[in-house]
Design a protein around this nucleic acid. Structure first.
Lengths: 142, 142
DNA sequence: CCTTTATAGTTGTATGTACAAACAATAATG
DNA sequence: CATTATTGTTTGTACATACAACTATAAAGG
């Protein structure tokens, strides 16, 4: 049956995995009041105050327009601030933003724990690195 | 830097991979006039005429509401038809739908070829099966 | 039978992400 | 310098997917 063939399709299985893992991530990060991607953006800003949008896009592997939209929402929540710098825009965390740092990292740790509990620490970590390597390869070729 | 840590996050790497692979899939399937998920739904219907929406959701791992939306669009394109059957709905392909079969399978084959060209056939196929197995595990636990 | 419960599908709404085109600011070139 | 090209960001729009609440049909229990 088709069923079997679907499982041999990288697009299909990758999408499926992402849907499952995204749901787990949303649950873990819900404590922070942020969806996972927003939390990652916050981490990137906290990690490098004054980071530009372009850099954020590169680190997060997101398109510029997506970064603009994410930032817009975080500015509305007063977690970050924008500061024009030539044609770039630099992003800084606010006090309120810094206060979330601990809770974000906590959720992140819990997320990793929760899928590693199911997959086993070794397999989970190996898989993750493999996915990263493979995305890299595929991106490079396009 | 944060960079390194992101690559150790399954949510992050899985999402990234899906974005890359989805883009490849969209390109390959564009010849069929369908986005990848629609093409998969078509395949499932062609594979089992009269399949119910519930079954489609199970095979494709999509929520009922999502299946409703996909079907709606394919009905508009006159590629499938719905037929009420008690509280279920059975889906059949139209003549126009059947005509697409060859081209859909062609695109699907090309997609597999195109990422296997980059990853190597063995690694590509192994990865895919692994992702499928892991999605299964994670889904079961939730 | 009639009422309650379970099951299948739909609808309204929201969200993340992207593309393409536009805009704004700097850099390069004639 | 004035014009053109390049680079970084934004805006309009679109799409896949989901959740929650709803509707419709069938099954089960008194």
């Amino acid at each position: 049956m088709l069923n079997r063939y679907l499982e041999e399709c990288l697009y299909f299985t990758a999408s499926r995995l992402t849907r499952v893992v995204t749901k787990m991530a949303e649950e873990e990060f819900s404590r922070t009041g942020l969806a996972p991607t927003y939390a990652f953006l916050m981490m990137a800003v906290l990690d490098k105050e004054g980071i530009t949008q372009k850099e954020l896009g590169e680190i997060l592997h997101l398109q510029p327009s997506t970064v603009t939209r994410l930032i817009e929402k975080l500015v509305n929540k007063r977690l970050i601030e924008k500061q024009a710098d030539g044609r770039s825009t630099r992003i800084f965390s606010t006090e309120k933003g810094k206060e979330r740092e601990a809770s974000i990292y906590e959720s992140w740790k819990n997320l990793r724990a929760s899928y590693n509990e199911i997959l086993g620490e070794k397999e989970g970590d190996e898989l993750t690195l493999q996915l990263s390597r493979i995305s890299e390869q595929l991106e490079k070729m396009k």
